[in-house]
């Protein structure tokens, strides 16, 4: 299901959902929920966006049914803890690689995924100041190291 151009801001969250479908369905579910909520605010009027959001909603309802015995889906407080722990685990892995001077694609992706999952946390309410700082740092690091590797420079 291609993400319409108007909903470009959530395309990476939707892709993260697809990547976690089997690995961690709870992560996949909340990434889609974020895509749904944010997508509705961005554009739910044009036919291509309505079609996309309707399909996304079908997917969410099906997932909720399939995962009805999972506390992280039925209780949002547990879901919040699950996503936050997962995001911080990604962040810590990338940060540890960074501090050890090991710069590679996987650590860039971990920084970036951590920042996307910190976006996803906003479905549960306002982000904490700490999470806002982590998100900013992770996104900046991902961009900075990506550009260094692309230009053949050593990250400082």
């Amino acid at each position: 299901m291609a993400v319409p151009a108007q909903l470009k801001a959530v395309q990476h969250h939707i892709r993260t959902a697809q990547e976690h479908e089997k690995r961690d369905p709870v992560v996949a579910y909340y990434c889609r929920l974020y895509g749904m909520q944010t997508g509705m605010k961005l554009d739910s009027k044009t036919p291509e966006c309505r079609k996309f959001l309707m399909k996304l909603m079908d997917q969410l309802e099906m997932m909720k049914k399939d995962l009805s015995d999972n506390d992280s889906i039925t209780q949002e407080l547990v879901g919040h803890a699950h996503i936050e722990n997962y995001a911080l685990k990604m962040f810590l892995y990338a940060d540890n690689e960074d501090r050890s001077g090991r710069f590679h694609k996987n650590m860039i992706k971990s920084f970036y995924t951590a920042s996307l999952l910190l976006d996803v946390l906003s479905v549960f309410g306002e982000l904490s100041e700490e999470n806002i700082q982590h998100r900013k740092y992770a996104r900046w690091k991902a961009t900075y190291i990506h550009n260094c590797l692309k230009n053949g420079e050593a990250p400082q």
């Binding site: 509705m40 739910s44 009027k45 309505r50 959001l53 309707m54 909603m57 969410l60 309802e61």
Partner: peptide, 27 residues
Amino acid sequence: IGSISTSVASAEQDELSQRLARLRDQI
């Protein structure tokens, strides 16, 4: 035709909002 398509769009938007609220156990 314009007003019909506008009301279809707003009905679908309402449907999405209602389904979202149900999904999140808000109704």
